[in-house]
């Protein structure tokens, strides 16, 4: 295996491992349990604050890393550059999209990460959810420019 092939294999192994740790965390935290998620979103009813700790635990790691750690690195280990978002504009697309996402999340109790991870539970209903989610993404891509008229393109 040449250097490039080796790097590629390491990259895929790293990606698989990160995904596994992520999926383990989702299942451990309760994020794949829709009844828990709905309990968390029931702020104005019988609120279950448990899942707020998931974001707390996650940010306890990502916040110091993104504020202090990443700046000390030139490049990622298995790629050329860090691919970080650059947009800073607050537009109707961001707010409207987030609002739609919140509505869908509240309707079922699954957001994209737990939806994909819980495909492992082999419940056909979760596959339907995943397929509908994929369709929704392509629909948004098709509607781009129609849903959003005042978007500033660089």
């Amino acid at each position: 295996m040449n250097n490039n092939g080796m790097n590629n294999a390491l990259k895929l192994a790293a990606s698989l491992s990160c995904g596994a740790l992520f999926g383990f965390g989702l299942a451990l935290s309760g994020m794949t349990d829709v009844s828990k998620v709905i309990g968390f979103l029931d702020l104005f009813g019988a609120w279950d604050p448990t899942l707020a700790f998931v974001m707390g635990g996650g940010l306890a790691i990502t916040l110091p890393f993104f504020q202090f750690g990443i700046g000390k690195m030139q490049a990622p280990l298995f790629d050329e550059v860090f691919r970080l978002p650059t947009r800073a504009d607050i537009d109707a697309q961001l707010i409207g999209g987030a609002a739609f996402f919140g509505i869908g999340w509240g309707l079922v109790g699954l957001c994209p990460g737990p939806a994909i991870a819980s495909l492992a539970y082999l419940n056909v209903d979760i596959f339907y959810f995943g397929a509908a989610m994929a369709l929704g993404m392509f629909a948004a891509e098709q509607l781009d420019g129609f849903l959003i008229t005042e978007k500033v393109r660089p």
Partner: peptide, 19 residues
């Protein structure tokens, strides 16, 4: 929830460091 969240945060940090 806290430990699971930490796993998620660590996975996200590692994905940035590695890829």
């Amino acid at each position: 929830a806290l430990l699971g969240g930490a796993c998620i945060g660590l996975a996200a940090t590692l994905l940035m460091i590695l890829l």
